[in-house]
Amino acid sequence: MTAGDFENKNSARWAEYEALVRSVELGKPMPGVENLPQRFRELCLDLSLAQARMYGTRISEKLNALVIRGYNLIYRQKTGGWQAVVRMAAVTFPQTVRREWRLFWLCSAVFWIPFFALLIAAKHDLTWIQSILGSRGMADMEQMYGSESGQIAHLRSAYGSNFMMFCFYINNNVGIDFQIFAGGMAAGVGTVFFLLFNGIHIGASAGYANAACDPKAFWSFVVSHSSLELIGMIIAGMAGMRVGLSILWPGRLPRVRALVEASKHALPLIYGAAVMTALAAVVEGFWSALPIPSAWKYGFGATLWVLHVVYFLLAGRQARDAA
């Protein structure tokens, strides 16, 4: 059989297949679409024949393109919908955090050690903190947490400013989480840098608020969202370090393969970190600055910290291991 005969014999079938594929691609499946998988396999056979019999580039390329289009439709992955989301939150995410407990302590140390070092340093000597924050930073801190009572609530009194701050925190803080993760690609250096930077900056701010502003104004504002935001950031750091360490120590896999596996394992951490930080933005935007007694805020914040410990220790224990 020559190439021409082959094409004449089968072109009607190819045209039918292409019409089916186009209709599905456009989202309007035509009648007879249930035959698509069968037509697809027939076309695969035609392509193999065309290649084996060397019917020429033109026919092969045409069939190749048709097969790829069908393959993309038939092997499209459906996401699991709400069930998958619930499972991620209730099982996969806490299980992954527990499995990566070494990374959790590593990233926690990278963040909390500079944080507490600066917090304690502030009691003895402010020069370090002054050079970290700079005059702008110190002025901002005093504007927000200065000695007048209810200063934050006053700053938020304009209509819509709670919503604006919520959006600001989403853009800024969730974006920082993603950057912390991406920094892992530089063999973890970027992740460590961002975690250290945040530990130093947040520690310096807290130390300065303690020493030079109204500590109550500061702590009652940050206590409510601190658990969500800081643990979320540390978990983003875990995702980054998982990727970074796979580059440094790929183990028995080739480096690129190890990187792909590590990225897959880091995904639940990224999802979790993003959701936690987004929730932190909700709290920080709409609750933390409310003019209510500080005792409520301290109670709320403490409850959230306890709930975090419970969630990460216990959630998903009974369920079978996430893949």
Binding site: Y159, G160, S161, F163, M164, F166, C167, F168, I170, N171
Partner: peptide
């Protein structure tokens, strides 16, 4: 409100 619009822009 101006601030709501600013917030939406950030989102």
């Amino acid at each position: 409100g101006e601030r709501v619009a600013d917030g939406l822009m950030l989102l």
